Simulated assay, not measured.
Amino acid sequence: MEVGKLVAVIGDEDTVTGFLLAGVGHRNAQGSNFLIVKQDTQLPQIEDAFRTLSQRDDVGIILINQHIANDIRHVLKDYNATIPTVLEIPSKEHPYDPEQDYIMQRVNMFLGGGGV
């Protein structure tokens, strides 16, 4: 019996901590469902975390801070699965910009709009 899917988070310390306090965190022998991105976090580590989380069967949604998504945009553009769904969210230091959100661009394209 499947209980449900996890929400994974890739974000800055404040964002991830908030979601962990809300009960989103999950850790087992295979790893965790979150990555705290700090200033010294290397880009390949973020890319690997996204690829790993996006291939897990137990993850339904990946939340990622938009400013971090911008750093791995080349990886996100190649991602075309529906589940897990990738949602870009703002952080305390970086407000949300719908023009940078790839999902919003795709939705707009389907609806026939020119820009966001």
Rank of each mutant, 00 (worst) to 15 (best):
56 R>K: 05
88 E>Q: 14
56 R>Y: 01
94 H>L: 00
5 K>L: 13
78 D>G: 12
3 V>K: 13
45 Q>E: 14
104 M>Q: 14
111 L>M: 04
79 Y>E: 05
25 G>Y: 08
110 F>A: 10
45 Q>N: 13
100 Q>P: 01
95 P>C: 09
33 N>S: 05
10 I>M: 04
69 A>D: 08
1 M>F: 02
60 G>K: 06
61 I>S: 13
89 I>K: 07
85 T>H: 10
26 H>D: 07
5 K>S: 15
76 L>E: 06
116 V>R: 14
81 A>V: 09
28 N>G: 10
55 Q>P: 00
116 V>C: 15
99 E>T: 04
58 D>H: 02
79 Y>F: 10
6 L>Q: 00
48 D>K: 10
8 A>S: 06
40 D>C: 08
59 V>R: 05
95 P>K: 12
62 I>P: 02
98 P>N: 12
19 F>Q: 00
71 D>C: 05
37 V>H: 08
11 G>T: 01
53 L>N: 11
28 N>A: 14
58 D>E: 06
5 K>I: 08
100 Q>M: 11
7 V>Q: 03
111 L>R: 10
100 Q>A: 12
97 D>R: 07
16 V>G: 06
18 G>I: 04
32 S>L: 00
42 Q>M: 13
74 H>A: 15
78 D>E: 15
20 L>K: 02
67 H>F: 07
49 A>E: 07
74 H>T: 12
75 V>T: 14
70 N>V: 12
82 T>L: 15
11 G>V: 00
5 K>M: 14
